[in-house]
């Protein structure tokens, strides 16, 4: 084998480095002032620091869109690929490097429109990674076109009289996919909840899908206005195995106890109502992960010889 750039870990040296927030700081974020992505970036940096994830062993993969600039703002490895194709790129990284911490950052156009096929299949593969859907209900970078999650009747440049179709519900869709193992929803304007949700997603072994409700001050400022101003619109799904932040009780009084093991309850709670539900809808670590299914025990020497003989017999001349 050729020389691989060796990580301190693989070289057997005891790694005594500790990482501060600044160690994860990449380029200066160029999102608009007031954009929810800033708060998400901060929460992610906090997670990296709290978990002391080594920058060199962490990879952020994104698609195309405002939120997909994410990797540039972190001093980790990163891949800013194609519109809608973050998930297959991330799958490829994990096929080669299952030991890396892989995070995928997608927007609603990315994940739910042009990349929807990958979203379904990545959920089913259940590769161990964190997939963040930064959902601002609109195409931002291309300047205000209706996305699959734009609320009904909300106007845009492409549908000026208002969106004709009911919005797609990403949580419901993900919960409907075979082998979905972790589905959660949080909001960027509640940093404590956002952080706890990211942490739960990071610690889940499998494909962790988190929809983050994200405000866009330019195109969809009014969409979450009510949820931001009236905490009673929010219903916290709480459970000891899910997320429960007693500190938030004073503000968010609407609570429902939901066990993340309960898939039927999760699907019911995911249905659209007047309430915006935050928390872990579903979590199941018993579901098979693609990389484990494909990491079969190596054949023994005898088995290899037998397989080789069979192979050669097939074509013997």
């Amino acid at each position: 084998m050729t020389h691989y750039g060796c990580s301190l870990l693989s070289c057997g040296v005891i790694d005594e480095r500790t990482f501060e927030m600044d160690d994860y700081q990449g380029a200066v974020a160029r999102w608009c002032p007031g954009c929810g992505d800033h708060s998400i970036l901060t929460a992610v940096q906090r997670l990296l620091e709290e978990e002391q994830l080594k920058p060199e062993e962490t990879v952020f993969v994104s698609g195309i869109g405002c939120s997909s600039r994410f990797p540039h703002y972190l001093n980790t490895y990163g891949f800013h690929g194609l519109h809608g194709r973050a998930l297959p790129v991330a799958t490829g990284v994990k096929l080669e490097r299952p030991e890396l911490n892989v995070f995928v950052v997608m927007g609603d156009g990315d994940c739910c429109s042009i990349g929807a096929g990958h979203w379904i299949h990545a959920t089913r593969y259940n590769v161990d990674m964190v997939a963040l859907l930064l959902d601002n209900n609109m195409y931002g970078l291309t300047k205000g076109q209706t996305s699959p999650t734009t609320p009904l009747h909300f106007p845009s440049n492409t549908q000026p009289r208002g969106t004709y179709l009911e919005a797609l519900n990403p949580v419901q869709a993900t919960l409907g996919v075979t082998n979905a193992s972790f589905v959660a929803q949080t909001a960027e304007w509640i940093p404590a909840h956002l952080y706890e949700t990211l942490k739960a997603a990071y610690h889940h072994k499998g494909f962790s899908f988190v929809r983050i409700l994200q405000r866009c001050p330019v195109y969809t400022a009014s969409v979450y206005d009510e949820a931001v101003r009236k905490p009673d619109v929010i219903e916290m799904m709480v459970h000891d195995d899910g997320i429960y932040l007693p500190d938030l009780d004073q503000i968010y009084k609407q609570k429902i106890v939901h066990n993340p093991k309960d898939i039927d309850g999760a699907r019911r709670l995911a249905e659209v109502t007047e309430r915006v539900r935050l928390g872990v809808f579903y979590r199941n670590e018993a579901l098979p992960r693609y990389e484990d299914l494909r990491r079969l025990p190596a054949h023994t020497a005898e088995e290899r010889v037998r397989l080789l003989s069979e192979e050669l017999d097939r074509y013997a001349v």
């Binding site: 691989y4 750039g5 301190l8 990797p71 891949f79 890396l100």
Partner: peptide, 14 residues
């Protein structure tokens, strides 16, 4: 560069 190499963290893309 193989990810995992300290000090060579970089971003690639289109």
């Amino acid at each position: 560069v193989r990810p995992g190499t300290p000090g060579l963290e970089h971003r690639l893309g289109g």
